[in-house]
Write a protein that binds this DNA or RNA. Structure first.
Lengths: 123, 123
DNA sequence: TTCTTCCATAACGAGAATGTTATATAAACT
DNA sequence: AGTTTATATAACATTCTCGTTATGGAAGAA
């Protein structure tokens, strides 16, 4: 099922990276990392109309990066970051090329603990 | 110098994520992870004209994701993945939300070593 | 010099993205 | 019922994006 000579198609990544390619949307995501927020709250810091922000939220929702909820009239947004992990997983293919060693901390810690017999209680 | 209420502008990230939002370009990057390649080599697997691929390469170059070189008539492209690390660094803000803990292995090791007085020589 | 190969650029068109203002909808308040 | 508040949707204009074909230019081959 190869779509071309290299890799399978991953349509989700188109949408995810596309959603991340906008500074307003990244700012919204950063804001949501601090907790959920309503449309008006999210729109406030921007010099942009409310409908514009609503549409950015729609883009983020379609990318699976946020969830909307229902609170009476409000439709607060909250982060849903599993699709960001999808993006990171793709980027992870290039670990070897950027020199520094990103890796799963869990694996690293498990590895270190299996070798280290003390100093597990510090601070 | 805050551009809005949340974060500074990071225009590079627009371009980087924008470059990553296209399946052809991601396929090209994956291909380049296996080694440098000329335009024609890169274009071959696609059902797309050579000029189209040339322009994808230009997008990737502007995003700092590839470098072009000079080999007689050829202009082979090679990966330049430090800007992908930039993207990962931004995404890293959301580590806490996607459950698994990606992190800079180097920092983790430095941290652990500063607390651990032995077991620095293992293996 | 002429031909061929490799790649870039120009000109164009279709469709998507992003903003605007105006309006619709739905729930809450009076 | 009528008003206010919170958000979505419609209609529209402008600007990108991404593909095409046609052409240009530079380097190697004949």
């Amino acid at each position: 099922m190869e779509e071309n000579g290299y890799t399978r198609q991953q349509p989700d990544l188109d949408v995810i990276f596309g959603a991340l390619a906008d500074p307003t949307r990244r700012a919204i995501l950063s804001r949501l990392a601090a907790g959920q927020a309503t449309v008006n709250e999210l729109a406030a810091p921007f010099q942009m109309s409310q409908p514009a922000v609503s549409r950015h939220l729609k883009v983020l929702e379609k990318a699976g990066l946020i969830q909307r909820e229902v609170d009476e009239q409000r439709r607060p947004a909250r982060l849903r970051a599993d699709n960001m992990a999808l993006a990171v997983n793709w980027l992870d293919e290039f670990r070897a090329f950027w020199g520094t060693s990103f890796d799963r901390l869990d694996d690293v810690l498990a590895d270190l603990q299996s070798r280290t017999t003390e100093e597990q209680n510090h601070e």
